[in-house]
Nucleic acid binder design. Structure first.
Lengths: 298, 298
DNA sequence: ACTGGATCATGAATTTCTCTCAACAAAACC
DNA sequence: GGTTTTGTTGAGAGAAATTCATGATCCAGT
């Protein structure tokens, strides 16, 4: 065994690097500054006497050495997670329940894979979805009706409720390619004034656009609803109005040129997603694992 | 992936714990204080909510959780070492030579397994033994005639020569069961006065006993030589004299009651083994790995 | 049961490291 | 060519692991 400076955090970094394709995004993923990663990698590369990836390519490309260490990282992470799950199930008795409350429709896109992975790894934990569309999800946690809520922005601290950041994303305006506003580099709230906002059938203040973009500017466009993301896009493409969705949820359609996306405001509208859990459960390994799975997007 | 406090150092600790069977010996093995390990393990056990091994049994017994993590540790260490060897061979070109000089006969007992493992892992490195029995091994390194020397005690720093601690051991006196001195709890230098010292055919000052025990007290017993450890034991058992050998090298014979061992001095004679290497090579991964293999005893 | 020695635990202080911060360099992108 | 994104670097702050000193516990041998 070579005494090496390789630590778990380096393995996490490598995986995040491969998953995100850039230093700065990898830094977000592991909740440190990109400066930290730069230092980390400099040290590693110094130790191995070789660069681990080519900088300045998008996405970055690993060198042979980097790729080998990345493979190691994936193996080790997998093995470690497995061992720790086993131990946790012996120690914790294996039981438990996890009732998930969600307030945003698009969340299901990433929630489903995470839930699937979870079910496989924690078969003894009862996993349920409780609708969060009527009540505020966080109050469901507070009252004990849910064990896990996905909420927007950092929630105000409440007694008995722990929170953890999940990830951030950008919500963008979606327009038909032929829409007049498609010429602008970005959209202002006023641009929505005469338009129809196409969205999921939820309350106004459950929508990122309304809460953080339109409402502050006093703009209240007409609304039209659709249950499914594809349906919304259909309406947008046929010129029935504008939508506002998380950038990643429409990635595929943008690449095909089906519709176009525009930032909301000059610097875009970034939204943060947080998890809220009962403090009594926050330390449970299966809950922490669930959070981790969501962060990794699987 | 559960975000866990499990770090590489913890895995090293677990393996050392299993190999040595006690906290304090494991601490020696990883070159930290026993206190450090105690803290480490307390943290780990706190995290997993379960003890990892039963204390106060000799050797210690792992719990189910501890055993699982130990298995993980072994896996991860193996995978990591393998990956790093590959990377090192790509980066370093794979070549190199390793000429080993040794000054003590018993060293071969642990050197051979280490060399065997090394040959397997670094097939491209030329591994040779150069006799260190005529010259002082460390000067062979200094003159460039050897790349690796095993020496006693911490060597005085020399220009261009790097040193690294290998391990410590106790050398004990070996007597026939019927020998009068076998009644004493420990032997003083004076006890050797009228006796015959049976040892390997090397200079006086190459023997731990002489250099650190007898010579300082001005005692110079008669000497009689044998090439092989078994031969020495033979002579001892038949009452021809006393030997002084590393405790671990005669372990098997002691258990069978073939001979008896006595500490040299009231608190025993502990010897330290060091490696001396050219500074220019000290950082080479294959050299560090060789050191590591020796420390692990394989 | 008592004593001596070895093994392990604990708390405070220190050292060691990593991270962040802030300013800079280098690309990339209009 | 300016402007924005992305990565680098050095210094300082903060956290965490280690050591040191000491106390508790356990086992062996009488």
């Amino acid at each position: 065994m070579i005494q090496s400076p390789l630590e778990m955090r380096h393995l996490q970094t490598l995986v995040a690097l491969a998953d995100t394709g850039s230093l700065s995004r990898a830094a977000e993923r592991v909740f440190v500054t990109q400066s930290a990663l730069s230092h980390q990698l400099k040290l590693l590369e110094g130790h191995y006497g070789s660069p681990l990836f080519e900088r300045g390519t998008k996405p970055l490309r690993f060198t042979q050495a980097g790729a080998r260490l990345l493979a190691l990282a994936r193996q080790v992470r997998e093995l470690t997670a497995e061992a720790e799950r086993e131990v946790a199930q012996w120690v914790g008795g294996g039981g438990g329940q996890l009732r998930v409350a969600v307030e945003c429709h698009t969340c299901f896109d990433w929630l489903m894979p995470a839930m699937d992975a979870f079910r496989e790894h924690w078969p003894q934990v009862e996993l349920d979805l409780v609708s969060g569309f009527q009540a505020e999800p966080i109050s469901l946690v507070e009252t004990g009706a849910a064990d896990f809520a996905v909420v927007h922005d950092r929630p105000a601290p409440r007694a008995g409720v722990a929170t953890a950041p999940l990830f951030t994303y950008e919500t963008v305006a979606i327009l038909s390619r032929k829409h007049p506003l498609a010429q602008k580099p970005w959209l202002s709230p006023q641009d929505f004034a005469g338009e129809t906002l196409i969205s999921y059938p939820v309350e106004d203040d459950m929508l990122d656009v309304v809460r953080h973009f339109l409402a502050p500017a006093g703009v209240k466009p007409k609304r039209r609803n659709a249950e499914l993301t594809v349906a919304i896009l259909q309406l947008v493409a046929s010129g029935r109005g504008i939508a506002a969705l998380p950038a990643w949820s429409v990635q595929a359609y943008l690449e095909r040129g089906y519709v176009v996306a525009k930032p909301l405001g000059e610097s875009g509208l970034r939204c943060e997603l947080y998890a809220a859990m009962p403090e009594s459960l926050a330390e449970k390994p299966y809950l922490q694992d669930f959070v981790a799975k969501i962060r990794e997007g699987a």
